[in-house]
Write a protein that binds this DNA or RNA. Structure first.
Length: 468
DNA sequence: TGTAGGTTCTG
DNA sequence: AGAACCTAC
């Protein structure tokens, strides 16, 4: 494979090496923010190509795939119906598509992939071996800083968020890039998009770049000033709700960071920090791909329960019938909307791990299946944080009290009543403790499946035993 | 990005 | 009585 010749650098990629190319974007739908793409576009127009990876196209019922298809439909429409879609394994499909284009030197731009980086290497190898293939640009889920690039003073990956954030702020990130020219190649056929999977009643907002940018502008104008305080209120629309757009590359974090650059105040600072968390967890997973499903720190892993009772408790959690209103509201929001407020994600996760003593992997799997923004990096590292096995993890003794959390972050009980109809007749914050109502727990709402105080003690005891 | 249980301060 | 603060887990 020819080495890129030295020259002007665009977004960290040598522009001299760039030529008209094929874009394979697996998740990154936004065409004009990716450094590798910028370099390719500098040498000529770009062919928008999407390969439906069979890994992404597994068994039915995944909300993320429904979002992906709808998002691609929007992209296809914005391209005048000329998005090139191919189905199959990228290792085989990408070289075949490349061979259908005019021959040119092979150029593989290596951007850091996340989670599937071993697979990306296989695609690169296949392309390198393909004779006469066209330039090829690989693109992965967009981050401000490519995962795997920031290192600490000793040249190792960061283990703690704060030093990572300091380096992240110090080093900075490329500015968002202009939209590239599009190359239409009539000889390359599209196999078309599959139908969106049946959502089973889940209601999704509008996908696509236009909707993402509209949401970003509305958030910046109306919610950002008060973001630092409002982001913890699940009863109000205080968060950006941009996670799903970021995940599918409908908006690039660099676009958001550029838009924050001249905004003073705690809100902007906090939102920038949340974007940094996203980069941090991607970096952690890039450096430790095994940490998606295995504890990052096995020595901190506490024994969890198995068997019939454990399975029944898991089912009660997943279906939102634990008898703890804030937990049930969150789990039902997940099933109804494919999204849960971040504060509530922490509460329900703490409940699964520390009140029900179930392995965090079960919760992470359930979340990935139902969350439209479900991402192996943010989701699974977040679960490890709750379980205390992760980088920068919460101390083992941190156990959320579902009643206290409910009263504090949903003070009028509006969030609970929105998702738990059995409790709609209960006014105010009393909704967080239905067992204290004069008439007892309302008809149809379950009794608590565990005693929180007792299970908190049990969790602390297990951790104490672990530490010897 | 915790909680529980305690003490001390305040009205 | 309740806020504010402290500390062990």
């Amino acid at each position: 494979m020819p080495r890129p010749s030295p020259g002007r650098t665009v977004g960290g990629v040598s522009a001299a090496a760039a030529r008209p190319g094929v874009l394979w974007f697996r998740r990154d739908l936004r065409l004009h923010d990716h450094p590798a793409l910028v370099a390719a576009a500098a040498g000529g127009p770009v062919l928008p190509l999407f390969v439906l990876d069979p890994l992404l196209w597994g068994p039915s019922g995944d909300v993320r795939r429904a979002w992906l298809v709808r998002s691609l439909e929007h992209l296809d429409a914005s391209l005048g119906g000329r998005l090139v879609v191919r189905h199959g394994d990228p290792v085989e499909v990408v070289p075949r598509v490349a061979a259908e284009l005019e021959a040119a030197a092979v150029h593989v731009t290596a951007d850091a992939g996340v989670y599937g980086r071993h697979r990306d290497a296989a695609v690169e190898a296949a392309l390198a071996a393909a004779p006469g293939a066209v330039p090829f640009v690989r693109s992965s889920t967009p981050y401000a800083v490519a995962p795997g690039t920031l290192k600490n003073g000793s040249g190792s990956p960061f283990q703690v968020f704060s030093p990572f954030q300091r380096a992240w702020l110090r080093e900075g990130w490329p500015a968002p890039a202009p939209r590239p020219r599009t190359r239409w190649v009539e000889s390359v056929a599209s196999e078309g998009l599959p139908p969106a999977p049946d959502l089973g009643g889940v209601e999704l907002p509008e996908p696509g770049e236009r909707a993402a940018l509209r949401r970003w502008e509305a958030f910046r104008e109306e919610l950002l000033p008060a973001y630092a305080g409002a982001r913890d209120r699940p009863d109000k629309p205080g968060t950006s709700a941009l996670s799903v757009h970021l995940k599918y590359g409908e908006v690039h974090p660099r676009t958001l960071l550029a838009g924050l650059a001249d905004v003073p105040g705690e809100g902007a600072e906090r939102f920038r920090s949340e974007l940094c968390w996203r980069d941090f967890y991607a970096d952690v997973l890039w450096n430790r791909p095994d940490s998606a499903w295995h504890p990052l720190k096995p020595e901190a892993e506490v024994p969890s329960d198995t068997g019939h009772l454990a399975d029944e408790r898991y089912a009660a959690w997943a279906e939102g019938r634990t008898g703890f209103p804030i937990v049930d509201a969150g789990m039902r929001q997940l099933l109804r909307e494919g999204w849960v407020h971040n504060r509530v994600r922490m509460v329900v996760a703490s409940f699964l791990v520390k009140d029900l003593h179930l392995p965090w992997q079960r919760g992470a799997r359930h979340f990935l299946h139902h969350l439209r923004d479900g991402d192996p990096a943010s989701n699974n590292q977040g679960w490890q944080w709750v379980a205390g096995t992760g980088t920068d993890a919460a101390p083992y003794f941190r156990v959320f009290n579902p009643v206290t959390q409910g009263k504090e972050h949903d003070p009028q009980g509006d969030y609970v009543r929105r998702y738990v109809p059995e409790l709609r007749g209960v006014a105010g914050k009393a909704v967080h403790e239905p067992w204290l109502l004069p008439g007892g727990v309302p008809e149809g709402y379950p009794e608590r499946i565990v005693d929180h105080a007792a299970e908190r003690q049990e969790a602390l005891a297990r951790y104490a035993r672990l530490r010897g």
